[in-house]
Nucleic acid binder design. Structure first.
Lengths: 250, 250
DNA sequence: ACCCCCGCTATTGTATACATAACGTATTCA
DNA sequence: TGAATACGTTATGTATACAATAGCGGGGGT
């Protein structure tokens, strides 16, 4: 069986992890469904050992759940799970912003943040915002949040924020997509950008409490938008990850 | 080789994970040290596959770090890493307390909390507190925090708090040990108990912001005590996990 | 006809064999 | 004498073989 081409540049474990995560988030694997290792071996091209390592990682990541009798299943999330995850991330990012403000940031770092801000400003000048401008927005927004997180200079906090962002829709970029279909999209983006502006100001002036408060508010906005977006489900069929939200319960 | 006794009641993976975590926390494995899989196989009695799964889990847990060239090493923590982790947990528990207050708790649940409170009150009545009373305190305190976390009724939040508690010294019980040697131990315990009392009151009266604030203060107290305890390092030789704190850097 | 029990199959948990890459050492050349 | 290269050893990453269990289906008994 020489057909199995092995790409040595990236480990089989990582490859399997990416492939499986993609399958979960894209809805190929439905929530509650048991994941067959053998099937995963076929779809990912890796052998059982790396597949199992990937499964363990995805479980720790929160996308899978261990079945008592053995194996893993795709986790299902309630709407509240998602909104809690967003608020959770907001709380953590709030702490990050406070740390950044209290511990101070270099002029260089502040500049990166402001560049990011300006770039988004540039995008928002277009009314209405175009589709690929929106895709740029998603990238820039993610970059802004990542930068802010880094500025906390707290390794444990950065780790936790990364973990919180692994939750579907709880990542800075993951969910913004869903908002694009909303009629209020333009206003939402403008308000979010104002939050970004204020948090920079707060950090610059070393106002820790203010920086924290505004990041929390930022997350509350996202939670509100999630609710809005879920009411407009018709617009959202383009988002397969929505299938992860169990509609029957909660 | 029939000498290898296999206990089927608990998986080899879990056994290896527990054994390795114990080795790390007890200082048998020093920070920065590369973990040899073969050595781990010998000390844990499991074979390489479950050992590797355990290593992956411990990495996700934050106790290990992947080495780019392969394998894992024991992670070293700065004093700031630890204090950040405590504050991080405090922030998360603050959110949990707020959720509990906002979402409401049943009379039965409130009663459990109060029972826990009373039991600790009972212990604190002794002056000075005895050694095994202190050990009971550690248990009860952990129970209190676990209960409070549960009351948030937020699965994602509970998960994150668990993860944050995996950090050495950041667990409710893990670090209290270190405080016992401090001369101020008695006062600290009394103040901490007052925090517990207030958070219950806040939850009962559905004062979310107050419940959150007091849990954060609770963590700040712990951070202050960590500093105190680390200055009194002589008292702390009984705590091997201290070896995880890198003294050279930061 | 329905229920229970036994056996089979499929899937997971575990062990180990194999390949590859990294690190250390020794030898040689400048 | 020092440095660089080549070789060997050892470790990890991967694949697969083996074992045991859980779930399922069929057959038999009541």
């Amino acid at each position: 069986m020489a057909e199995r081409e092995v790409d040595r540049s990236v480990s089989q474990t990582v490859k399997a992890q990416l492939a499986l995560r993609d399958q979960i988030l894209s809805g190929s694997l439905r929530p509650g469904e048991r994941i067959s290792e053998l099937q995963a071996v076929e779809t990912t091209g890796a052998s059982r050992t790396p597949v199992r390592m990937a499964l363990v990682r995805l479980e720790e990541e929160g996308l899978l759940e261990a079945i008592p009798s053995g194996g893993f299943m795709v986790k299902a999330f309630s709407e509240r799970d998602i909104s809690d995850s967003i608020e959770l991330r907001g709380t953590l990012e709030g702490l990050a912003a406070r740390f950044a403000a209290e511990r101070g940031v270099s002029a260089r770092e502040l500049e990166s943040l402001k560049e990011c801000l300006s770039a988004i400003d540039e995008l928002l000048r277009q009314v209405p915002i175009s589709v690929d401008a929106f895709s740029s927005y998603v990238t820039l927004n993610a970059r802004f949040h990542a930068l802010l997180t880094e500025l906390s200079r707290s390794q444990p906090l950065i780790r936790q924020i990364d973990r919180a962002s692994a939750m579907p829709f709880a990542s800075p970029s993951g969910f913004v997509m869903a908002q694009s279909a909303l009629p209020e999209a333009q206003q939402i983006l403008i308000i979010a950008q104002e939050h970004h502006r204020v948090v920079i100001d707060a950090i610059e002036n070393r106002e820790g409490a203010r920086a924290e408060a505004i990041m929390r508010e930022h997350a509350r906005l996202a939670v509100r938008n999630l609710r809005l977006a879920l009411r407009n489900r018709t617009h959202l069929d383009l988002l397969p990850a929505l299938a992860l939200i169990k509609t029957a319960t909660d």
